[in-house]
Amino acid sequence: MADNAPSVTRTALVRQAGTSKEDVKRTTRRILFGVFMYGVLIFVFVVSALPVVWVIMSAFKDNSAILSSPFSLPNQLNFQAFVQVFTLYNFQTYTLNSLLVASLATLLSLVVYAMGAYVIARFDFPGKSLFYILFTLTLLVPPHTKAQPIFSLILNLRLYDTKTALVVVYLSFGMAMSMFILRAAFMAIPKEFDEAAAIEGASFVRTFWMINLPLAKTGLATAGIMMFLGHWNEYFYAMLLTASAKHRTLPLALAFFTEAFSYDYTQMFAALTVVIIPGIVIYALTQEQVQASVASSGVKG
């Protein structure tokens, strides 16, 4: 924007008419703005990256190094704390729990909401717009406000303190965002495919499963990534709906762990690293999709 054609001609005009004093003023202003701009960008970079880098670095240092020199690089790559966190403190169970709950909930959500979004995108039927409006309005419901009814519901279903409870509750979380993304994905597929399939005698389910679902895979991937990230990171309902260590997910395990082992800094940092790395890796692999879906819908997870 700053250096496009009109501004160049304008500067030239000013230069013809103006004095050199004005030139100096303009240059100073440009330099000051540049300093300000890069200052802000560096600040953004530092406040976002430094906490994470510091946590990962500290996981490789011993207690005394963490206390005496918080900024120093670790002397050696010592994975002992990670080994301990996994073998002595059951983090492999928690990691598996998180993986299981997040993947199952994501897969089930994709099936349920793809079916719903498909018929909303493709067919006219009584109640269609009402359903769509209601489904997307769920975005406005803060998850915490439903805490008690969902807690009681899970108790009544005899699912309290199970991984199933988390899968079922997480399944409901992605509703608005999935409907948003998946409906758009199905609407982008030309209707002729469906008509051709109907002429060939393909059944309704087959048309959906074999033709539409594969063609909507970009949308499915985006919705899936966003939901998986959200489920992987979820803490509130995991805390509310589970009690025993057997069914703990990573974020919850982290909270318990730091309460119990607050004297062993290295292990605390190692546990924290274990919890944050997968999210960062998933994001690093899929950043285009994540950024695009955040920009378009303004929601995450």
Binding site: V44, F45, W232, V294
Partner: peptide, 23 residues
Amino acid sequence: VRTVYMIPNVISGAAWAMIYRFI
């Protein structure tokens, strides 16, 4: 910068709270 700025938002809110508790 945009890529890095996203990181605090893709890690668990619980983990982020912990990180700040340590900071």
